[in-house]
């Protein structure tokens, strides 16, 4: 009896569905916002520190805001080091890899999804299992091969060996299966479309969101890659952005001030690409995992 009057006196509690407990909600949001800070703070910290003078970066206790703010680090980096050259090489290499892998992966993914051919299962298994070969196994021989062939230029060595990743083919196959109806292909064939024409005129337009996912994934993988460029590119005139920053950081006594400025600038393209194509990327990455 008392409990009934208690609830009827509190109209807010009565109207709300029982499931929503305000305390639980508050806790949930507190948890998620705390995590938000954990993931965002280091980057904001770098942004702030990049505007501090060299001495202020290492002040104690650490100051959250750059007071006084200075552009000295950016000036020092851009004036004294070939930052734009690094950025250019990184971007060109990443764009080349992206264009090639989008083309090759979607072509192969289309073949695996929409054709029945001899040896298909064996070929698919070979392709799929190549994902499990560790990079460390092939790195030494691959380097020897590339070096002996004098092909250590970034435009070859950082692009060609990596343009047809099995992961990309697998992802594209899943998407073609989901989004390209067989009837549409048959109709186009009746109209006299060639097989490559099918790919270009029917499949590619339908695949657009998936292509976005693969493109941003390829771009970021290439743009951020470190170990292989570190091994294969030895000429400082051909450094990619990560190599340039690594050199700046490693060689002459940890130039934190310059590297912080470089980091902030280096992150801009990747964040830009990520935010422009975020939805495609997240959905594309998980498409294969959830289904199989």
């Amino acid at each position: 009896m008392t409990s009934v009057t208690a609830t009827s006196r509190a109209p807010h509690g009565a109207r709300r569905p029982a499931r929503r407990k305000p305390a639980g909600r508050a806790l949930l949001y507190a948890f998620l916002i705390a995590l938000l800070l954990v993931f965002a703070l280091p980057l904001l910290w770098a942004l702030s520190a990049s505007f501090k003078s060299r001495g202020d970066i290492f002040s104690y206790p650490p100051q959250p805001l750059p007071v006084p703010a200075t552009l000295e680090n950016y000036r020092g980096l851009l004036g004294g080091h070939p930052f734009w050259g690094w950025l250019l090489i990184s971007t060109v290499v990443a764009l080349m890899s992206t264009a090639a892998s989008v083309a090759l992966c979607s072509l192969a993914g289309f073949a695996f999804a929409k054709y029945r051919f001899r040896g298909q299962n064996v070929l698919f298994t070979i392709m799929f299992s190549s994902m499990a070969v560790p990079f460390a196994v092939i790195v030494v021989p691959l380097f020897v091969m590339v070096a002996k062939a004098h092909l250590t230029t970034p435009y070859f060595a950082l692009v060609v060996p990596w343009v047809a990743p099995a992961f990309g083919i697998f992802m594209m196959r899943q998407f073609v299966e989901q989004s390209v109806p067989d009837a549409l292909l048959d109709a186009a064939r009746v109209d006299g479309c060639t097989e490559f024409g099918l790919f270009r005129r029917v499949v590619l337009p339908l695949l657009r969101p998936a292509l976005g996912a693969l493109a941003v994934w390829s771009f970021l993988t290439s743009y951020n890659s470190l170990i292989w460029p570190l091994i294969v590119v030895s000429d400082p005139g051909q450094y990619t952005l990560p190599l340039g920053l690594q050199a700046l950081f490693g060689a002459t006594g940890r130039q934190y001030d310059l590297v912080l400025a470089g980091s902030v600038l280096a992150v801009i393209p990747s964040l830009l690409v990520f935010f422009l194509l975020r939805r495609q990327l997240l959905e594309g990455l998980t498409a294969g995992a959830v289904k199989s």
Partner: peptide
């Protein structure tokens, strides 16, 4: 979701550099 995902988007060298600063013993 996007903010939690962001770390993998960013160059590892940038991340480790920042963490190097954060982990610094003195400062």
């Amino acid at each position: 979701r996007l903010t939690y995902f962001m770390p993998v988007v960013i160059s590892p060298i940038v991340i480790t550099l920042v963490f190097g600063l954060i982990f610094d013993r003195q400062f």
